[in-house]
Design a protein around this nucleic acid. Structure first.
Lengths: 283, 283
DNA sequence: GTTCCGCATGAATCGATAG
DNA sequence: ACTATCGATTCATGCGGAA
C-alpha cells in the first residue's frame, strides 16, 4: 500500500479547510505558545490566544474521525508573577465546541530550561492534553507497554540488572532506547506521566519536540495506514515519525522555509518510487 | 521557645473564623476530593465543589500572612469519561477572590501500582497549586537543594580557557555561562516537578499523603517557629511534620476520630512540659 | 568499534533601567 | 505610572571529534 504525505504551505486556519470531514485518526501538535518563539512565529498574545485558537480547534474537530484523538502540547507562561490562565480557558471553551477533555498527560522534561529566580523554580513540565470527539475512541494500549520496574519485584531479584534499566523506563512511562534490554522482561502499561528529554543540540532547527513524543502517541492511538495530522508542522518531527511508522500524514506549516525543507526531505522518496516505476514498470 | 500545636474539631468553614487575620505562614492541605468521603463533608458533588470551596479559600486568604503561601493538593476526577473541570474553575474563581496563582507544581507519584482501564492509563500525578496573597512572599530555596546530576563529574574536572564566557551566538537570549562558578558545586535547585513515592501500605487511614510532601513545602516556605495550617488535617501528617520541624501548627478536622487521634499523639508532649514547669517552676 | 570529553543550546523569568 | 528593552542567572543533554 502506498504511503501518503500531504504537505500544505500556509495558515492552518485556511489550509485545514482542504481536508475532508472525519478523515484523520490522530492529531498531534505543538502550536506556538503565547508570546513565545517570537523569532520564528509572529507571537500570539496571551489575551488573544483563546480567540485565535478556537477557529482552528473547530476545524480540527471537523476533520477528526469519531474514533480519533487530538493531542495538544502546550504550557502557559508566567505573566506578572502569575501563571496565565489561557490554557484553562481554552479547555473550557473547547468543551463548549464539542470536544471531550479526556485526559491530561504530563511531559516531565529531564532537561528543562536553566535559570534561577527568587520566587520560582525551573519549569520542568508541559501539558499534553488529550481531546476526543466521542467516548469510543481507538486506543492500542499494548503498543506502548514498558518493561517492569523494580517497584514490583521489590529488591529480591536481580537488583543490579533492573538498575541498568534507564531512568525513564523506571518511571513507568519512558521509552528506553535499548529495546534489546527488554527482551524476556515482563512489561506493564505506562502511566500518564512521560519522562523525556528535549532535543536541544545541533539540529539547525529548534526541534524542542523529541521524536519519542509523537512516536508514543502514534503507537497508542493509531495503526498502520491510519492518518496523522500536524497543523503546526514546524520542522516536521511528527510527520517524519508518522511516515517511518507507516502512517499516512498531513502537515501544515506557515513558514515557507520549514515547509520547503520538509518537502525536500520527502522528495527523494518520491523520486525513488518514480525510478522504480520506470525500472520495473516498463518491463 | 515553646512550640504550639492548636487542634480544632469541626467544620473548617466555622473553625477557621477562630484564627486571627494574617497569622499563618503556610497552608498545606489536601481537601476531600469531589464525590469522595461522602459522609464527612456531606458528599461534595462535582458540580458544587467550587461553590463549596470558595468560602473556605476566602477564610484562608484572610488568615494567611501577606508573605505566606497556600499549597493546595488536588486532582480532578474522571466523570463520564472526561476529566472534570472543577479544578480549573476553582483556580479562576480564587483569582477573583484576590489569590495569585503563582505556580503549579506536579507531584509525580513514583511507585504506585500499575493498572489500566480500557480508555486510560493509571493516573500517576497530582496538582500542587501554589497560591499567594502578594508577589513578595517568603521562599527559602536553599533549604531544598538537590544533588547535581552525574554530568557534572566528568565535566568540571579540567576547565579550558574558553569556559570562562560564552558568546551570545543566537537570538540574543544570551546565556553566558561561567563554568568556573560551578567548580565544587554539589547541589542545584530543584524544578517544579516533585518525584516522590506514595506511602502505599497505609494502615487505617485513607491518607495517601507522603510526609515528604509537606516536609518539602515547609522547608521551602517557612522557617523555624513559623506557623503552618492544615484545614483538612485528616490523620495529621502535615501537623506532625511541622511539629517535628519546629514549626507552630494549626490543624482542623471534622471527624472526631481523626481529631482525637492526633490530639492524643501530641498529648505526651504537653504532659511533659507541665511536668517540667512543676519541677522548675516551684523553685 | 567503543568510550570519553568538550561544547553549544534550549517554548524562561526577574529586576533594573530607559523612553 | 506604565511599557519596552536588556542583562543576569543556570542545568542537563546529545552530538561530534578525539583517545
Amino acid at each position: 500500500m502506498e504511503l501518503k504525505t500531504d504537505l500544505f504551505l500556509g495558515d492552518c486556519r485556511k489550509e485545514l479547510k482542504k481536508i475532508p470531514d472525519n478523515s484523520v485518526d490522530l492529531i498531534v501538535t505543538s502550536p506556538p505558545y503565547a508570546d513565545q518563539r517570537q523569532s520564528t512565529y509572529g507571537g500570539v498574545s496571551v489575551d488573544e490566544y483563546v480567540k485565535w485558537f478556537l477557529p482552528i480547534s473547530k476545524e480540527l474537530l471537523r476533520v477528526l474521525k469519531p474514533t480519533g484523538t487530538f493531542i495538544l502540547n502546550i504550557k502557559e507562561k508566567v505573566v506578572d508573577g502569575e501563571r496565565s490562565t489561557y490554557v484553562m480557558e481554552l479547555i473550557l471553551e473547547m468543551r463548549k465546541q464539542g470536544w471531550l477533555w479526556t485526559e491530561e498527560f504530563i511531559w516531565h522534561k529531564k532537561n528543562c530550561f536553566p535559570g534561577k529566580w527568587s520566587n520560582r523554580f525551573r519549569d520542568a513540565w508541559e501539558r499534553l492534553l488529550q481531546f476526543n470527539k466521542s467516548r469510543k475512541f481507538n486506543m492500542y494500549q499494548d503498543a506502548v507497554k514498558v518493561p517492569i520496574g523494580n517497584w514490583a519485584k521489590g529488591r529480591l531479584k536481580n537488583l543490579s540488572e533492573t538498575d541498568k534499566i534507564r531512568d525513564n523506563s523506571r518511571n513507568g512511562s519512558g521509552f528506553g532506547k535499548n529495546i534489546s534490554n527488554w527482551v524476556g522482561k515482563e512489561t506493564v502499561y505506562p502511566t500518564n506521566v512521560i519522562h523525556l528529554a528535549t532535543e536541544c543540540s545541533n539540529k539547525n532547527h529548534s526541534a524542542v519536540f523529541p521524536r519519542e513524543l509523537p512516536e508514543w502517541f502514534i503507537k497508542l492511538f493509531t495503526q498502520e495506514y491510519d492518518t496523522v495530522l500536524d497543523p503546526f508542522m514546524g520542522s516536521g518531527t511528527t510527520i517524519e515519525v508518522a511516515n517511518r511508522m507507516k502512517r499516512h500524514s498531513i502537515g501544515i506549516e506557515i513558514i515557507s522555509e520549514y515547509h520547503d525543507e520538509v518537502k525536500q526531505q520527502f522528495a527523494p522518496v518520491e523520486y525513488f518510487l518514480m525510478e522504480s516505476e520506470i525500472k520495473y514498470g516498463t518491463n
